[in-house]
Amino acid sequence: MKQPVGVILAGGLATRMGGGDKGLLPLGDSTLLGQVIDRLRPQVADLALNANGDAERFCALKLPVIPDSVEGYAGPLAGVLAGLDWAATIGADCIVTAAADTPFFPCDLVPRLQLTAEGMEHPLVLAATPDPERGSARHPTFGLWPVALRDDLRAALQNGIRKVVMWTDRHDGRIAMFPDEAAFFNVNTPDDLERAEAML
């Protein structure tokens, strides 16, 4: 399997943070988004940011900014589709997605997703952590996605599918288990941002 390219999902509305670009909030000596970039960049062959609105506000990051092609803030799957379409233009086979508000995800995210995907015709894997009640909890913004299924995903979105696992289950998507649930801690509120500062 070729090294995938990375897509950071930052297309949400950040309503619980009061709106705006949550990823640009300061964290440590950087920003939420800066922390995510530093963690994902070494694991992928190339990197882009999925975000809507004026791309100029991210110009300091020196990343391609790819908006959703589906209107109306259709959720993470719209960002995945935008990433797959971008990946197709640069000749990549797969993308790995990470959320812009989750700064502590594993430094071995990509190789473990790839290992879980071995033997699949179309590598489709979501990250997961143990859950005492359900056995596992999937983290649908962290996954390995094949470019080959982008038209299928486009059709699903056009037909109203919004829930990530509804689509991945259709294609026998797998899960890659990560032992540390805190690794996927995401910042949704000002209190979460304070907690992230403490975790740093």
Rank of each mutant, 00 (worst) to 15 (best):
P4F: 05
F104Y: 06
C59T: 14
K163L: 05
R112E: 08
V70D: 09
F104W: 03
T89I: 07
P67V: 13
K22W: 07
D46V: 03
M120Y: 10
A117L: 05
G6F: 01
D21P: 13
L157C: 07
G83W: 01
P179R: 08
G53S: 10
P64C: 03
G19R: 12
N188C: 09
G20L: 10
A155R: 15
A92Q: 04
A196D: 06
L13I: 15
L13Y: 11
L47K: 06
V70L: 14
D29V: 04
A45Q: 13
I66V: 15
A88V: 07
P146S: 08
G143L: 02
T97G: 03
V164D: 02
F178P: 00
D54F: 06
G53D: 10
D93L: 14
L200G: 04
L109W: 02
G23C: 05
G11S: 15
W86D: 00
V96H: 00
V125L: 08
G23L: 05
I90F: 08
D180H: 12
R162P: 00
F104R: 03
L47I: 09
P4S: 07
F104M: 02
M120F: 10
R41Y: 07
D68C: 09
S136L: 10
G34E: 02
L33F: 08
A45S: 14
L13D: 15
K163R: 13
T102W: 00
A148V: 11
A51S: 14
E121L: 14
T141C: 08
G72M: 15
L40T: 09
L24K: 14
D21I: 14
G83N: 07
K2E: 12
I95V: 15
R16M: 12
L9D: 01
F184Q: 02
L32A: 05
P140A: 08
M199D: 02
A74T: 14
V96Y: 00
Y73F: 14
A98G: 07
G18F: 13
D46P: 04
T168P: 00
L115V: 09
S69E: 15
D180L: 08
E133Q: 12
L153V: 05
Q114R: 11
A10H: 12
G160Y: 10
N50K: 02
T129S: 08
V110C: 03
L115W: 10
T97F: 01
E194T: 14
S136C: 06
